[in-house]
Amino acid sequence: MSPGDESILDEPILSARNLSLSFGDVRALDEVAIDLWPGEVLAIVGESGSGKSTLLRVLAGEARPDAGAVTYRDTTGTVLDVHNMGEPALRRLARTEWGFVRQDARDGLRMGVSAGGNVGERLMAVGARHYGDIRAEASRWLERVEISPTRIDDRPGLFSGGMRQRLQIARTLVTRPRLVFMDEPTGGLDVSVQARLLDLIRGLVSDLGIAVVLVTHDIAAARLLAHRLVVMRDGRVVEEGLTDRVLDDPRHPYTQLLVSSVLAA
């Protein structure tokens, strides 16, 4: 390790080693290793089929790798083996220290429950039992994601795509997770809506100091949000490093192709 400041001596919050996973003949993950430090935003970019979404699911414990391990260092400093901690512990993590923002807000929201109930669910899951407090906190979070608190009793079905995605973000961040997985959070939205959402995510993530693993095929989103970048192709990490260096000085032929295919990233 070259000389660096003290914060560099701290340990990764999430580490993956030698992750491999095949679906039949397709190698979705091939010897993938990843480290993520507290408060860091790591973007995983690549085309569809590159294995980036599979990697996200494996990191979050939603899919089991054929080989390799993912470890998470919790708030007490205990290192947990994500795929061997048992479902109760994993679920507890998923609703406390972790969050997951899905590409399709319908997968991350309860469509039959009001906006306030959606935001309040994680609070209640960790034991909040005061209706007034839960509602007040939900209201604050709606405002924070630029949804009028007057919509607190509306169901997400009445919301636009961008609002739904912002609601999903409020619902995920309300318990102040330390680590959030995001799967194409701006996918499927209009360009103008994307910009607003990206900016919102950028602000919240830096204000709250959340570590994020962001899967995206949107290079501009990665540049805006990520401290570091991982480029995946055919289940392998072909290049990784500082976001602007990977994008401005790409070394791997595939990264050069990826960057050159984007207008003004």
Binding site: M1, S2, D5, I8, H227, L242
Partner: peptide
């Protein structure tokens, strides 16, 4: 040479070290 006197090599620094150098 950083503000605290420690010398860092930007050419071999990790992405996190580069970000720290850019911050400080």
């Amino acid at each position: 040479r950083r503000t605290d006197g420690v010398v860092a090599d930007l050419a071999t620094a990790s992405p996190r070290e580069v970000n720290a150098l850019r911050r400080d």
